[in-house]
Computed example of a mutant assay.
Amino acid sequence: MTKEMQGTEKHSPRYHSLDTWPADDILETLWASQLRAISCIQHAIPEISASAEAIAKRLTDGGRLFYIGAGSSGHLAIQDCVELNPTYGWPLDKMVPLIAGGKDALLAPMGGAEDNEHIATDALNKHAINAQDVIIAVAASGSTPYTLAAVKHARSQGCLVISIANNRHAPTFEHADHSIFLDSGSEVIAGSTRMAAGTAQKAALNMLSTLTMTKLGHVHDGLMVSMVINNEKLEKRGAAIIQEITGTDSETSKNCLRAADKNIKLAVLLAMKYTKSDAEKALTNNQGHLRQAMEQLK
């Protein structure tokens, strides 16, 4: 049995005759598998933490954030990537989602693309990756040719490489600066890594990106102070955030949000009676960290 088969591809005998089991028993087994997938992340917390610290440093220095993967892992990577702009205001030109097969792979299987190493390196070369950039590579086995080629190439260009995989001996780990091993174990449906492996990947990606964005100053008191406000619901949420942080009334919060062109951090400082000029300067001096700007203005 190969090292890969020892992990996500292994068929566990505990699921023998699964298709003959009562429906509730199958669901209980799937539920237990999902719980194990989530619990395995606890052991990876130190590496997730170290990865987020390293990512935040590169991004502070002007780097871009690349997410790369194939199949189910690629879908999860892209989902995490595209949510960074609306949730944390992360600039669209500073994030690059890449999946084997391109946009077509989002709606249809593109199995052959994940075996093509050149597609990955060509995509990274097209974006002219450099030593400031960060690559987050996600692959359950850690041996997908597309993802492995991307990791190798990115490392050769001096990029910070974060590898997330569900096999202890993932080849992508050999070329990564930080390796996040998610020991989700055998799948109930052998090889169906959208299940336990995917659940662990999704949760780990949530944790990694959330901590990274927190380190970059996009979270204050557990509030999304950098979110993009582009509809009425989010405008109300933005005003509520300003109220919660400053203790001001609803009308003042709304007025400050409008005066700040829907920039929540700036609106918070305006609600605290600082001038727009002083508030903007404080935020700039503190790289957008609201708490630090508030301390400076005191």
Results as ranks from 00 to 15, higher is better:
residue 264 I to N: 12
residue 229 I to W: 04
residue 48 I to D: 05
residue 55 I to Q: 13
residue 98 L to Q: 01
residue 240 A to K: 15
residue 23 A to L: 14
residue 105 A to F: 04
residue 254 K to N: 04
residue 45 I to F: 14
residue 158 G to Y: 05
residue 92 L to A: 11
residue 83 E to L: 07
residue 236 K to S: 10
residue 152 K to Y: 01
residue 280 E to I: 00
residue 203 A to I: 15
residue 36 R to A: 09
residue 13 P to F: 03
residue 111 G to I: 02
residue 282 A to D: 00
residue 291 R to P: 00
residue 111 G to K: 13
residue 133 D to T: 07
residue 179 S to D: 05
residue 224 M to G: 09
residue 251 E to D: 07
residue 123 A to I: 00
residue 162 I to P: 06
residue 212 T to W: 03
residue 262 K to G: 00
residue 10 K to A: 13
residue 178 H to K: 15
residue 253 S to G: 14
residue 246 T to D: 01
residue 149 A to S: 15
residue 38 I to S: 09
residue 280 E to W: 00
residue 70 A to H: 07
residue 220 H to M: 03
residue 216 L to D: 09
residue 86 P to W: 04
residue 62 G to K: 11
residue 258 R to P: 00
residue 39 S to Y: 08
residue 126 K to F: 13
residue 2 T to C: 05
residue 184 S to Y: 08
residue 67 Y to D: 03
residue 65 L to H: 06
residue 142 G to T: 11
residue 66 F to K: 00
residue 27 L to C: 05
residue 36 R to N: 14
residue 31 W to T: 08
residue 214 T to C: 12
residue 181 F to C: 11
residue 182 L to I: 11
residue 153 H to F: 15
residue 52 A to H: 11
residue 243 Q to T: 12
residue 69 G to I: 04
residue 239 A to I: 02
residue 185 G to Q: 06
residue 4 E to Y: 14
residue 156 S to W: 02
residue 94 K to A: 10
residue 270 L to K: 06
